[in-house]
Amino acid sequence: MTGRRLAAVAAGLLVAALLLLLPLTLRPYGLYLMSLWAVLTIAAMGLNLTLGYAGQVSLAQGAFVGIGAYAAALLTTAGWPLGAGLLLGVGLGLLVGWLLGYPALRVQHHYLAFVTLGANTLVFLVLRNEDWLTGGVYGIAAIPRPTVLGYPTDHPLAFYYFCLGVLLLVGLGLGLLLRSPWGRAFEALRENPVRAESLGIDTRRYTLLAFAIGSAVGSLAGAIYAPLVQYIDPSPFALGLSLALLLMVVVGGAGRFFGPGLGAAIAVLLPEWLRFSEGLYLILYAVLVILVLVFLPSGLVGLADRLSARARGEGR
């Protein structure tokens, strides 16, 4: 047991060093990629709560990233601080996410996938068509970077550390949430909703909560995405982002705490390695997802667990 703990601590230190020190050597584009990784990880962690822990399919996470991004963009370009945008984005995410949960109370898996998919498209249509609010296809430009605790984050390195800080806070918050009885109720809901209900777990309320919280975390990611790219239009928030986030969660390992981070890392890095063709990247990614599903139902983090267990002769 101590050997395992030691290995975990060593891995943790290595990742921490990588996240803290590597950026010092990177040029702006590398810093942009690492910031993007942090943002995508946050969004995927939110989806992991809804899908991986509570077992509720959502194909609308990208729309929530969009809601958060527009909330932050609209408020900060109007002169408000980013904190206000974050609050508005998270508030909207909670509200819309809660509403999105209602269909989940009535219908099962596959229907739910369609309803959330439809919701994603509706949000996209609103972002594209309501020019008076969102600027339509022209989007919103010149989104300012925030000043955090007196430090401006205009430099890519400063903004990256800001993203990393938010990621750590979100990770800590979600970690505590998942270890609380709420987290256990979410897992009970995923494992066996009928039994959970018979044990006094109000499955309706927890289903709505799972959607609301997971979606709000997605919106939070969006609210940091806006100042990262400093220009947003509706196109990134179409169905494609929702599908990509879903695949990140699955590839990393649904219901695994560190799965989204790994899935997002692959999603950000793979296209860089395969720079010569964006299309080929998506093809390989799709093949990877299918392979993971068929051969590694618990995702890559699950694979790492099994390998480390086997290395110590604990394999079953």
Partner: peptide, 17 residues
């Protein structure tokens, strides 16, 4: 059902790309 949903989404991306 869920793995099938996700896998066919991946198949869709694969064909399209």
């Amino acid at each position: 059902v869920l793995p099938v949903v996700i896998a066919t989404i991946a198949v869709g991306i694969l064909l399209k790309e």
